[in-house]
Design a binder for these strands. Structure first.
Lengths: 248, 248
DNA sequence: CATGGCCGTTGATCCACGTCAACCAAAAAT
DNA sequence: ATTTTTGGTTGACGTGGATCAACGGCCATG
């Protein structure tokens, strides 16, 4: 069945059922018949070049986006110019959920490399959710996962030290690369030290120093944006009992 | 019509349509006919005494909760004992959304005072969402609002200084009290300095000192947990251009 | 293959907040 | 009413990470 469908431009256009990202994306866990209905959902694809915005804070909310290729960052900015990266997103992850509440996007989504997204018109999603059993549930799970992730970041920002934050970040990246079939131990970061710092609530110099320290200690090998994890157990230990031995 | 309905125990039991919190809670924006259907939704009420858990991290997820009276905090804990308050919730706000993603709660919800919640069985919510037009949309908005709120906290934790964080916290509390018909300028905090500190990523001593400083500067009047805001414009200014004048 | 603009690294210094400790007020327990 | 406990304030001091500054290696562009 599957092999008999030739890969054509129109075939590529919107088929969730043909997409190799199903297991990471919105359609996860849905039945074949449900999946085929999903193909109606994705309106179009949209390419976003490196450094370009997928959407901006203040833009009217119309659709959510599934990342088909590439990666993004989201950030919020204060009037005084300060900004904070609120997340990095990889293939299969969903962007734009922040817009539902006020019908206006509340953050900026910027491509870290040339990327492509599937546009999922929100009105159509709500409509189809009424009919397709699994879709509603899956969508709720995606939103809930985002909330849980954010709580994790709050924990990191509120109660971890610089090196712990970076270790947690690296382990998280590794785990997400693994889920996408890439090496768990060796990967290429698409973001700058400054962006990592912003996400982790640190200055870029502190991030750089922490990388160097990890390298000295044999935990990782760093070469610019190329990272090799040499001792993941060591990184994990670093997070857990930084305060160990002091009895508090 | 409304006056003719006697307030009985059974009448009190589950009626969203009779509840004075509709405008803050899940039913917001729904039509009268939709509202009446919602009354099927709320299974029961549950009282939670001060310091008791509504649910714990690891508990199986079965329902979300709308706060009818009182207030809560949610927190996450790391294996090494560190914990982080991820939010404070007031009447009309929804608790438990974190549980949807893994079908297990990922944080603890603890009452800050003797409280009462409406139990909303999640399976029933999903079911009813298929039928009641506005419910699904409103639920999505509630989840999205939580995501936006979390981004705000990340901004606060990642790029604000101690006094800015506390000012933002006080203004946020004020705004939420106002929405509930209480004074914007004078209120009683239900949480300790330590809990505020945990939420803001600060130690309790730092919170206490910031309170004292605000008082010295005539921005607020503090008497233990009782707070009076004397200069909200001043507090707002404090957040915006802390860095002003330095040209960066 | 040269040149200019990022991006990352590293060092020296500073300061905001954490830590440690003493003390006091309020509330709870007896 | 008295003791105990819990929560809050304040001071002295230490430190992790910010700030300021210099430099070096990439990568893009002509």
């Amino acid at each position: 069945m599957r092999a008999s469908v030739p890969i054509t431009v129109s075939g590529l256009k919107t088929a969730c059922s043909q997409c190799n990202l199903v297991e990471l994306c919105l359609p996860f866990g849905m039945s074949d018949s449900e999946l085929s209905r999903l193909d109606e959902l994705v309106g179009a694809r949209r390419k976003v070049k490196r450094q370009q915005n997928l959407y901006r804070a203040g833009d009217p909310f119309e659709a959510i986006y599934a990342i088909r290729a590439g990666s993004f960052k989201t950030d919020v900015l204060l009037e005084d110019g300060r900004d904070q990266v609120t997340g990095f997103q990889m293939t299969g992850e969903i962007l734009g959920l922040d817009g539902i509440s006020t019908e206006t996007h509340s953050c900026n989504a910027i491509a870290l490399e040339d990327s492509e997204v599937c546009v999922i018109p929100y009105a159509k999603l709500e409509e189809l959710s009424h009919e397709v059993e699994g879709l509603q549930h899956q969508f709720h799970k995606v939103m809930s996962r985002e909330i849980v992730r954010d709580h994790g970041v709050m924990m990191l920002l509120g109660s971890m030290r610089a090196e712990e934050r970076l270790a947690a970040f690296l382990l998280n990246m590794s785990q997400r690369f693994t889920a996408r079939g890439f090496s768990a131990a060796e990967f290429h970061l698409r973001m700058t030290r400054e962006e990592i710092g912003s996400y982790l609530g640190l200055k870029l110099e502190t991030v750089s120093r922490a990388f160097s320290r990890f390298q000295e200690e044999g935990l990782i090998a760093v070469q610019q944006k190329h990272i090799r994890l040499l001792d993941t157990a060591g990184l994990r230990k670093l997070i857990q009992h930084q305060t160990a031995g002091s009895g508090r």
